[in-house]
Write a protein that binds this DNA or RNA. Sequence first.
DNA 1: CCGGGCTGTGAAAATCCTGTGAACGCAGGG
DNA 2: CCCTGCGTTCACAGGATTTTCACAGCCCGG
Lengths: 109, 109
Amino acid sequence: MAMGTGHSSQQLAGRLEIRPEEHAALVDGRPLSLTMRELQLLVTLAEHPQRIMTREELFAAVWGGAARRDDRSVDVYVSRLRAKLGEALPEAQLIHTHNGIGYRFSPDG
Amino acid sequence: MAMGTGHSSQQLAGRLEIRPEEHAALVDGRPLSLTMRELQLLVTLAEHPQRIMTREELFAAVWGGAARRDDRSVDVYVSRLRAKLGEALPEAQLIHTHNGIGYRFSPDG
DNA sequence: CCGGGCTGTGAAAATCCTGTGAACGCAGGG
DNA sequence: CCCTGCGTTCACAGGATTTTCACAGCCCGG
């Protein structure tokens, strides 16, 4: 019964902790209220810190399959995710945009 | 995380106290009149503060076994429980909904 | 028997989530 | 400058999920 603190949890630069197995993302121990898609996106980004992930990769991981060429879902959800992260962690820049390529997650802003 | 350990009472952020062994839940020392199912559900939720518990987990703990895929018992009892908690502790948001996943108990609203 | 509380289920009502189109801002090139 | 391409955000409709209500069956004490 592996139900305690999951060993696959990611402890990030202090305050943000992501626990995919418990469907939770915590800031200072308090859970963010993220929707399924927002959480999946955050998990995917956080699984590859400092690596630039293309929209295709992100879409495949979160939605599955390939996105239409003009699909803006990833952008919209990055925006929604940034909004919620911004509430809990002001002054933190966790998700960076890389023009023409995709996004990059950086644990320490 | 063993759960049979004999902690006889849970003192929660101020006013709500849960005593599984006495089959009682108190608010400001006054007992709530909860039915068996409501109490079991509250106890189960309160045993894992701040943790999102899936419907499956809650059903298994309170009813035993696995619920039918379209069973709404957990939801209905959460609703009944919230109603009674709300009478005794207005303005308190103890049980949070996590869409598509389950519920989370938060001692301090 | 009767009455009252407890339970589970179905279904309506309320709420939330999702994807999409469009407006807006911003930067670079012509 | 103006145009264009790209990312960000807003608004909204449709769908999915949750909340609440009503009701019928049970159980048990009176």
